[in-house]
């Protein structure tokens, strides 16, 4: 897809290797996250790592887990794909307002 999906996949795979979860180590865009491969704590770690990486790579501060994320019709944490899309949306907003 693009650089954002690469970064999301990298963070997901890294977390997978830390948690010894094969599905996450071999993750692709369709890999399900919350409810299947990650519980709430898992999502918290994934999201904070992703935020940190985004800040390192692009010097942009975004908050992926907030009320807005929780109230989306489709949870951003459902799969790698939904997380990538939601991250992209927030990044676009952050860039325009920056």
């Amino acid at each position: 897809m693009n650089k954002v999906s690469d970064l999301v996949l990298e963070v997901v795979r890294e977390l997978g290797s830390d948690q010894e979860n094969k599905a996450l180590v071999n993750a692709d865009l369709e890999t399900p996250l919350f409810g299947r491969n990650l519980d709430s704590m898992g999502i918290v770690f994934l999201v904070t790592d992703l935020e940190a990486r985004i800040s390192e790579e692009w010097d942009l501060a975004i908050t992926l887990a907030d009320e807005r994320a929780m109230s989306q019709n489709t949870s951003p944490f459902r799969s790698v794909k939904t997380l990538t899309q939601y991250t992209q949306t927030l990044l676009d907003e952050a860039k325009t307002s920056a």
């Binding site: 709430s40 904070t48 887990a65 907030d66 929780m70």
Partner: peptide
Amino acid sequence: ENAITGEM
């Protein structure tokens, strides 16, 4: 604060 777990 954290939206998922209340606090982190």
